[in-house]
Each structure stands twice: as C-alpha cells, then as structure tokens.
Design a protein around this nucleic acid. Structure first.
Lengths: 80, 80
DNA sequence: TTCCCTATCTATAATTA
DNA sequence: TTAATTATAGATAGGGA
C-alpha cells in the first residue's frame, strides 16, 4: 500500500528500512490490539527493533500467562 | 476497512466473531511476516484462536530463541 | 462452514515541510 | 530525522453461492 508496491524482501537502505519499520510496527501493534479486542482472544506480539529495542504487545492476558499457556500445550499442538 | 467501520469492541455474535477472527488472523500473520522480512527484525506472534487453537508466527528466528532474547533483557527494558 | 466478490475503509510509500 | 500530506496499494465487512 502506498504510492508503489514494495517487494517483500529486505530493504537494503538502512534509513528507509528504519522508516518502514517505524510505520509498520505501529500498524502491526494496532492490528494485534484490534483482533484481541474484537475477537476476545489472547495475543502476544514480540518485536525487536533494528536498534535492538523490544516492542511488546500482549492483549487480554499478560505475556507470561500467554507463554505459560503455550508451554502447557502438548508438544504436537505447538506447530502453527 | 470493509463495507462498514467496526467499533473496536468484542463482537458478541459468535459466528461473526469467528469469521472476523479468521480474516484478521491471516492479515496479521501476513504483516508480521512482511515486517520481519522487509526490516530484517525478529518477530514472534502468538495467538490463541476462539477455539483455543494456537496460531504461531516466528520470523527470522525461532520462538524459543526470541524468548531467550526476551528473558535475557534487563527487567527494566522489558516494558514496551 | 468455506470460499469468492467487491465496495469501502485502512495502512503506508513517497513526498514535502 | 521526526512530522504531516497525499496518492495508492492492501485489508476486510457484508453478502452471495
């Protein structure tokens, strides 16, 4: 979306890559929040920015609870 | 987006909620994949569907590595 | 359910300030 | 480099088969 269609491959220019990251990070967190709210589901989103900074969203339940839920799954159910 | 703007609150009708979940889940996973690829960053997305099924996306690195990265953070850096 | 369709709303790439 | 603006690509709500 935007003026031009982007190929989905690594953006080599560091500046553009960071700009795109900042924009899409916001969009992704927003959508994680929306699906969590609309559909009343547990969602955890963990991102490490290009600078190594953590971006975390956990809706409905805190991340540690979601991870416990994940860990409690029988191993064969962990595959998406 | 779509024919009508939705309020961001729980969709009470179970059927519509599940339909919306299925659509938005696809979109969210796609965008997680795209930011991970375009911006070359670690992303982990964990969702439990309304039926309790796990939806997992982990880009670039596997979830266990991303979680280790998370756990290794000093506690004060864990806040988003 | 489970795809399609498509009108319409959103996200965002490029641009400008 | 961070903040608007704008043009356009993309996502999706409601419907139909």
């Amino acid at each position: 979306m935007g003026r031009v269609r982007l190929q989905i491959k690594k953006i080599e220019n560091r500046t553009y890559r960071h700009i795109t990251f900042a924009k899409r990070k916001s969009g992704l967190v927003k959508k994680a929040y929306e699906i969590s709210t609309l559909c009343d589901v547990e969602v955890a989103l963990i991102i490490f920015s290009p600078a190594g900074k953590l971006i975390l969203f956990d809706g409905k339940k805190r991340l540690d609870e979601i991870l416990m839920h994940f860990i409690d799954l029988p191993h064969h159910q962990r595959a998406a």
